[in-house]
Design a binder for these strands. Sequence first.
DNA 1: TCAAAAGTGTTCATTGTACACCCATGT
DNA 2: ACATGGGTGTACAATGAACACTTTTGA
Lengths: 231, 231
Amino acid sequence: MSILNTYSHSDRFLVAVDCIVFGFTNKEIRLLTFKRAIEPEKGKPSLIGGFVQSDESVEDAAKRVLNKLTGIENLYMEQVATYGAIHRDPAARVISVTYFALINLEDYDEELLTRYDAKWIPLSECQDLIFDHKQMVDDAMALLRRKASAFAIGFNLLPEKFTLTQLQSLYEALYCEALDKRNFRKKVLSLEILNRLDEKDKRHSRKGAYFYMLSDDYQAKLKKETYSFSK
Amino acid sequence: MSILNTYSHSDRFLVAVDCIVFGFTNKEIRLLTFKRAIEPEKGKPSLIGGFVQSDESVEDAAKRVLNKLTGIENLYMEQVATYGAIHRDPAARVISVTYFALINLEDYDEELLTRYDAKWIPLSECQDLIFDHKQMVDDAMALLRRKASAFAIGFNLLPEKFTLTQLQSLYEALYCEALDKRNFRKKVLSLEILNRLDEKDKRHSRKGAYFYMLSDDYQAKLKKETYSFSK
DNA sequence: TCAAAAGTGTTCATTGTACACCCATGT
DNA sequence: ACATGGGTGTACAATGAACACTTTTGA
C-alpha cells in the first residue's frame, strides 16, 4: 500500500502568492495594500497578490507581483508561510503562499499608487483586510521582528544614508517600545557594521545628525547571525 | 488594470505535503523515511508525504499523512516552508508544503515500519533522499534548533519520564556540540518547569539517575517564550 | 538666548562560561 | 574495591539595563 496517491488521480489547486510589503516612514511601519479589483470583496483592502502560473516557480510568482507593484527589481523578500484552509477564500479553493518584502519608502514611485489603487496603511488599520490577510500580516510581522533581532535586515527599510536616530525609530516601531538612546547607540556601533559619513542630516535639528551607511563588508558579517538590536 | 488574474483562467497545481518526522534515540536524532513506492525514483528513500485533497486543508493533509504512518493522533507538528520550483519533482509540477513532527521513539509502533517499508535513518544519511528532500530536512532542522532554543518543544522527542542526562544528550544532538553538565543542569532546573520524581532510571548506571517530568503548569510558562537551552 | 534634537559614560544586575571532584551502587 | 555514570558550586567575564547632562546651532 502506497502513501502517495498517484499523480494523475490527485486534485489540483489554484495557488496564490500574497505579498506583505513593509515600508517605514515617519516613525511608523506601513503596509502596502490595494483595493481588490475582483469579486468577492471587490473594493476592500487586500494584500497584493496573484496566482502562480505553470511556467514560473512560486518564488518567481512573488517576484513578478512585487516587481509589478513596486517597480523595484531586487527587494528584500522572504517566504513567510502557506495558508491552506478550505474556505479561506470564499469564492474558490485557493492555497496561498506569503512573502514579506522590505522597502525604503523614499524609493517608492508614487505614480504606482494611483495606477494600482494602492495605499500605504499603518499596521493599526490591518483589521479591514480581506480573508485571512490580517493573520498573514501578523505572521509576517512576527517573522520580521525575529529576523531583525538576529540579522541586519532592518536596513532594507531605510534609505542608503540614515541617522542613528532614524535607525532607532525603526527598531522602536518594530518592537513597539521605546529604547534607551545611549544603550542603542552603544550596541549598534559595537557591531562595527556602520560607517559614519562626514555629512549631516539637518532636516530635523539645528545641530544636525551624522549620516551612517552600512559598511562595505557588512555582508560577510551578516552570516555570523549574531546581531541583536533587541532590548 | 488588475493585479490578480481571474480565478477561472489561472493554472492549477498538484499540492503535496511532505513530513519531516524526527525521533531521538541512542544520543542521535533520526529521521523517518520510507522507500518510495511509485515512479520516478521508485525504491529510493523519501520523506513521507501525500497529495492534498479538495476536501481537506493543507494542515489536515499533513495530519492525515502523519497519522497514517505513526498511528499517533496528536503529535507535535509545525509548518516549515513551501517548495515551488518548477522541476523539483521531475515527473510533474508539484508544489510541496513541509511540516516537521517530533516523536518519542519509544512510543513508535515498529509494525508500521515493515508495513510501509519505512526506516529511521540518522541525519548523516540524508544525502540519499530524493528530489529536494534533503533541503527540506535541513530547513526543518534549522527551524527545530531555533524553536528548541526558545521553547521547550524538545520534550516531544523524549519519553514522559526522562533523566537530565537524556535531556542533555538530546540538546547535544540538536546542536551538535558538547554541553557542560553543571551549566546545563543549572539552567534547565532554573526554568522551574521540571518535577523530579522519586523514581530512578537504573538502566545506565549503578547509582541510577532521577527521572523528571514536565511540571503540570509548564504549559502556561511555555507562552513566555523565554526558554533557552542553547550554549 | 533659547529651543530642539544630537551626542556621550558609568554603575549595577543578570547571565553565561569555564572548570574538578565526590557520590552511590552493583558486580 | 573499583568502575561507571550521577550529581554538585564557585569565580570570572560578558552582556544588558538604568540613568542625566552637555553640545550645537538656526531662528
